[in-house]
Design a protein around this nucleic acid. Sequence first.
DNA 1: GCCCAGGGGGCTC
DNA 2: GAGCCCCATGGG
Length: 222
Amino acid sequence: MGKNRAAKQKLDQIYDRMFEHFGNRGWWPGDSNLEICVGAILTQSVSWKNVAKAIGNLRKAGLLELDKLYQADLEDIENCIIPTLYYRQKAKKLKAFVNHVTEENAENLTAFLGKNLPELREELLSLYGIGPETADSIILYAAEKPVFVVDAYTRRIFSRLGLFNDDITYEEMQNYFMQHLPPDVQFYNEYHALIVGTGNRFCNNKKPKCAECPLSGLCSQE
DNA sequence: GCCCAGGGGGCTC
DNA sequence: GAGCCCCATGGG
């Protein structure tokens, strides 16, 4: 069996195990593309529970619209997003995103997200507060274009599975998935969501629960 | 009450 | 260009 084929089978096996456990995760939780973009920025280094609180606050304040966010004072945004850690930084990041979309794209988020993938990615990466993971989350979950999102859970889980070195870069991880898996938005969506679910529940840095983990038996960590 | 979570920016040498 | 600190809340 070829190396590529073996890698693909392994990735499919891992996916199937996680899917059997979690089923369809239905990501991304958000009523609109703007909400997905806002969530992608706010979720940096913080659990989704806190992001949900912040988004609730923004909604109550009537700020979950591009023009409202564009016009809002930094301080009002900050007050809504205090639960998401580093709220001053993140308020600036939201502003940078909203300003860019509003000023460069005629107040149209749909047009912005409709750009072709490489162009959209480059533009996102040029913005303050948006690095590879946040850019790719927006591209996959809001723009619905096929880019594989990787994160700290991906690194931890797949190095414990013996597939990655733990010093592997973001790009190297992403390339690995994209070389072996077909560029399918729904599949990439679900795969990343399952990795995050597994990481959250079973592959925490402190106390991994290997016995109950859907990937038990595949993992060198146990 | 302390430590850790962890993406991204920015500084240092 | 790798390494380190900063952000600053909430959960274990």
